[in-house]
Computed example of a mutant assay.
Amino acid sequence: MSVRLDGDAIRLDGPARVEDAEPLLALLHEGPGRTVDLDGAGPLHAAVVQVLLALRPPVRGTPADPFDARWLLPLLGPGS
């Protein structure tokens, strides 16, 4: 599993698969305002991207996957 809680941040490590979308959603609902750390993440499955786009949590870090870093990170909001 690539989704884990690290203090007040949710870390996505390595490939984020479709089955990671539900735990990500649960962690974001349990702790509104939690930051999602994308350092080392990627590629991100479309389901994970949809959760991030729908809930718009604060995002930090740069995904390891070049496509995600170039095209998806700017969609996730200011400061990404």
Rank of each mutant, 00 (worst) to 15 (best):
A16H: 04
T62S: 12
V3D: 03
R56D: 01
G42Y: 01
P32E: 13
L53H: 01
G77A: 02
G61Q: 06
V18T: 14
D39H: 13
R17N: 05
L73F: 01
G42A: 05
L55F: 08
V51I: 13
L52A: 00
A21T: 12
L76F: 00
R70S: 09
S80W: 00
V59E: 05
V18N: 09
V48N: 12
V3P: 04
G14V: 13
D6C: 06
R4L: 12
M1G: 13
H45A: 13
G42V: 08
D8H: 06
S2L: 09
T35G: 01
R4G: 12
S80R: 11
E22S: 15
P66R: 07
L55H: 04
G14F: 05
R17M: 11
V3Y: 02
R56T: 13
E22W: 00
P74R: 00
L52E: 02
P63S: 08
V49Y: 10
H45G: 10
E30H: 12
E30T: 03
R11N: 03
P15L: 08
D68E: 09
R17T: 15
L25T: 00
P15Q: 14
I10A: 05
L12K: 07
Q50G: 13
L27M: 09
L5V: 10
D65F: 03
A69V: 02
R70Q: 09
P43Q: 05
V59G: 07
L38P: 04
D37L: 09
I10D: 08
A54P: 01
L72G: 06
D68A: 10
D37A: 12
L5S: 08
L5F: 11
A26R: 15
P74C: 01
D68G: 02
P78M: 08
A54V: 00
L76S: 02
L12E: 06
L72V: 13
P63M: 05
G61I: 03
V48F: 04
H45D: 15
L52R: 03
D8K: 03
D37I: 02
T62W: 07
M1R: 11
L72W: 11
L44R: 13
A54K: 10
A46H: 10
D6T: 02
L52N: 00
P58T: 11
A26H: 09
D13P: 00
D65Y: 02
L5I: 08
L53Y: 00
L75G: 09
G33A: 14
G14H: 04
P43W: 05
A46G: 07
L73P: 01
L52P: 01
E22A: 15
P74F: 01
M1F: 02
I10L: 07
E22V: 15
V51W: 10
G7F: 06
D39S: 14
I10E: 12
A26S: 06
R60H: 09
D13N: 14
E30S: 10
